[in-house]
């Protein structure tokens, strides 16, 4: 399994601002990436995404598929049991909790819609001024899409307001089902 490995030395050998084109499948080490950032060297994997970001199989930095731009319903009291995620989608579980105030649901669903998420189910409780909500959201499959989605939602969190967390559905399936 001999593959080309790009190390810090390879990056240091280049001039500032240079581009390093590596063949497909090449491995770029963490130190090489760090040094490339410092030295302003751009590393490009031919036929793939620039590292890091789309590194995992199936991710690949491909452009986002066209959004299934259906505005999500704010609540879904009579919703049917959600269908399993398809191969082209990935199901995430969005959890939020904090002190209740107006517009929280709008902020969350707005961010989900902006990132092409498709809400499958929502459950929300408010008690003594505090709320928690759980949403099942399908997003287009792919590592970079999921990571982008997570960043967009988690940055709505703030210490004195509410917290948002995004996890893959498989974490819960594994933990609670045999």
């Amino acid at each position: 399994m001999s593959r080309l490995v790009i190390t810090r030395e390879d990056v240091l050998a280049l001039a500032r601002g240079a581009r390093l084109a590596a063949p497909p499948g090449a491995i770029v080490t963490e130190r090489a990436l760090e040094t490339a950032r410092e030295a302003g060297v751009e590393i490009i994997i031919e036929g793939g995404a620039p590292p890091p970001g789309g590194g995992s199989p199936g991710g690949g930095g491909s452009p986002l598929p066209a959004p299934a731009a259906e505005p999500a319903p704010p609540t879904a009291p009579e919703q049917e049991t959600p269908q399993p995620a398809t191969e082209s989608t990935c199901r995430l579980i969005v959890t939020a909790f904090g002190r209740n105030r107006p517009r929280i649901m709008a902020e969350l669903t707005g961010a989900i819609e902006e990132r092409h998420g498709d809400i499958q189910e929502i459950s929300q409780r408010v008690q003594e001024g505090w709320f928690h909500l759980v949403m099942l959201v399908d997003v287009p499959a792919g590592s970079s899409v999921v990571q982008e989605f997570r960043r967009a939602l988690e940055c709505l969190s703030s210490e004195d307001d509410y917290r948002v967390m995004v996890q893959h559905e498989r974490v819960f399936e594994r933990m609670h089902r045999i």
Binding site: M1, S2, R3, V5, T7, I27, V28, T29, E30, P51, P52, G55, S56, G59, L92, S143, V146, Q147, R150, M165, V166, Q167, H168, R170, V171
Partner: peptide, 23 residues
Amino acid sequence: KRIVERGGRLVEVVDAIEADYGI
């Protein structure tokens, strides 16, 4: 060389899993 070749993607892959799964 062997360690770098075999482990070259370890940190990148684990970072991506952490971000994909939220764990």
